[in-house]
Design a protein around this nucleic acid. Structure first.
Lengths: 249, 249
DNA sequence: AATAATATATCCATAATGCGGAAATCGACA
DNA sequence: TGTCGATTTCCGCATTATGGATATATTATT
């Protein structure tokens, strides 16, 4: 044995490495690019990809490059549903206590993906939709997730995604954002104050120990969601986040 | 050798079988349920799941049941993007020729998932969003996909999903739907005529040879999308669908 | 067009890897 | 506390995946 292995099935671990490399690259990859990314011998990669293409989890373009295949889509959808189903009751408890819309979102590339939502009983409420992807720099969940990364990682994400302003309250420079994240880390929760949409305020807490970074939030109109609301909401958000985190780890 | 193997890496094939079983079940599964679904020995399944849980592609609940894990979500998203990126130019050609919104969708569970869209240049246009999931029985893409299945498979889907009416033109009985699908198969393309939304008509063609069933469509207001439009649209849709199908296979 | 250079795909002998029967452990229920 | 069904760990065996070497495509060069 050349290296110790953490008890996983080798070929499965390698397949996962390959798929992750393909997600990271964001586009089709050639065999040799994959070899470099994974430091595995070419024949091995080829054989594994052959297995995946045979099942449509990877498809080979006419360039002979490889891309993620359509069969992965139902897998991702299914995972989202199953996760959402578990998270739903926790969010429902938040809504029962606070009467504002509760969301859970996960980090996905340079954006944040909503995977679960329980709407507020109020007529005027938030309208985010499960499956929607929103920027990281001007949303509560996005900033809660960013605050868990170090400044360099944040910089890379913003380099790629930019900082489009959604409202006049949105932050537009990296320095502003990094300072806001510093405050967020210290305080332990993130606030979106009219940054994503005028008239809306949002409190968000990161899910601790989640494998893909995630966060939960409650949001509503500023008339109801004020400082006093925050005082009541944050401890509940913390509890919900750690309950979810405990189940995920 | 007890059985012939199609040249794939055994443990990888088995992992895919397990994940697919978990998607089909739609909820958490116990080890023994997985054993029954996959006809593999328990220790083997356990070892494979251990590898997957170690990487967060599967998570184990406190019940000791297993569910699809959060790491699958970015995979599915990435696959959707990479597929969409390739499909985009084909859809753009359709829009250039027809000036109506073009969509591509894949079969996902009991619904249809939009994975790519190019909007019409007209001010009045369709508003479907990528990532949205819509019913199968009252959409063009949905019916094009259903028409490729046999009646029993259709029946099972409708049994689970029901046939909620979106408009007064929506079909609401299985028999109506099966008859419509028979016509669709004969004709070679599907029509959604005010069934999903009043004032909107849609022509759709299945993507041939796609591993996950898929379809492309163009849709717009009935004032522009009439019989004459269909005559021009269908051959172009066919060409786009087979171009996409060729690349996917 | 012909040739070289590079990247991709296939073979196949080897042993390392994953396999699964058997046994231990855990957890639910009485 | 004892029993039963399910889950998890153990470990010797041989089946399975491995990767160096080789053949075959594909692209670049003259």
């Amino acid at each position: 044995m050349v290296e110790k292995n953490a008890g996983g099935v080798q070929s499965v671990e390698r397949v996962l490495d390959l798929l992750e490399a393909m997600v990271r690259s964001g586009g089709p990859m050639s065999l040799s690019e994959l070899a470099e990314a994974s430091s595995l011998p070419l024949p091995t990669i080829h054989r594994l990809l052959r297995t995946l293409t045979g099942r449509s989890y990877v498809r080979q373009l006419s360039n002979r490059q490889y891309a993620l295949g359509p069969r992965l889509i139902p897998l991702g959808e299914g995972a989202g549903e199953q996760l959402g189903a578990f998270v739903q009751p926790e969010l429902a408890r938040l809504v029962a206590a606070l009467s504002e819309t509760a969301n859970m979102a996960v980090h996905d590339g340079d954006k944040v993906l909503y995977i679960s939502q329980v709407p507020s009983p109020h007529a005027m409420r938030m309208f985010t939709e499960v499956g929607q992807r929103v920027p990281m720099h001007n949303t509560g969940v996005g900033k809660a997730i960013l605050a868990q990364l170090d400044d360099d990682a944040v910089r890379r994400i913003i380099d790629r995604a930019g900082m489009p302003a959604a409202t006049e309250r949105s932050m537009t420079t990296l320095d502003e954002l990094l300072e806001d994240l510093r405050v967020t880390r210290e305080r332990g929760y993130a606030i979106d104050d009219n940054e994503q949409e005028i008239g809306v305020r949002c409190f968000a807490v990161a899910v601790p120990g989640s494998p893909t970074p995630a966060a939960v939030s409650v949001s509503g109109p500023i008339s109801r969601v004020d400082g006093g609301f925050g005082k009541r909401a944050v401890p509940l958000l913390r509890r919900a986040a750690s309950a979810i985190g405990a189940e995920l780890s």
